[in-house]
């Protein structure tokens, strides 16, 4: 068995905010009709279906609304294959897809009072109206990303593994001390 290495290998940085690679994280993509997916998520994870552009967080798993026919489950790296198998059997022969994509993306955590300022430097998003539990798929600098708010000062960002280094360096650069913009207070 090969050793699991996250794209950013546990990188950490400190500046206007604390940045941290979340390390190896389990991710499961579900595609199909949301009514079908919602029933499977409820049965296997015991979590409600997230509303449009929302995240439902439970113990050991988060369910992210990604598009009108897609959900992403964030969970532990080791338990992802088992959960995916359970979700697949809950869905049965229904027209839906379950795929373990844990190694496809990088998950970066941002924490600090200025997290919104840092994100707003890279994403064309108005973060003034962004409650806890909301999710937004957008671009970070020049690549696709999704950000969601886990608490008042904690944010998560996912991007594809191939561009993780780019996104990380962009975040570290815009979060350097001295770059405060105080856009959001």
């Amino acid at each position: 068995m090969s050793e699991v290495v996250s794209a950013l290998a546990g990188a950490r940085a400190s500046g206007m905010v604390e940045l941290a690679d979340a390390g190896a994280t389990g991710m499961i993509t579900l595609r199909g009709d949301h009514a079908l997916l919602g029933a499977a998520v409820q049965a296997v994870l015991g979590l409600a279906m997230p509303e449009v552009r929302r995240v439902v967080a439970g113990e050991g798993a988060q369910v992210l609304w990604m598009s009108p026919d897609e959900l992403l489950v964030i969970t532990g790296y080791d338990v992802a294959p088992g959960l995916a198998a359970d979700l697949q059997s809950a869905l049965g022969d229904a027209f839906a897809t379950v795929a373990v994509v844990s190694d496809a993306r990088a998950l970066i955590r941002l924490s600090g009072a200025q997290a919104r300022d840092v994100l707003a430097k890279l994403c064309p998003v108005d973060f003034a109206d962004f409650p806890v539990g909301a999710l937004r798929r957008t671009r970070a600098a020049q690549v696709a990303a999704a950000v969601w708010r886990t608490s008042d000062s904690d944010w998560s960002l996912i991007c594809f593994r191939s561009v993780a280094g780019y996104v990380w360096e962009a975040l570290v650069t815009v979060a350097q001390p001295g770059g405060e913009v105080a856009l959001y207070r």
């Binding site: 449009v52 552009r53 598009s67 009108p68 064309p124 998003v125 937004r136 798929r137 957008t138 671009r139």
Partner: peptide, 12 residues
Amino acid sequence: PCCGVTAEETEF
């Protein structure tokens, strides 16, 4: 109209 997001054109 699919996800309800209002964004600038660089996201499209």
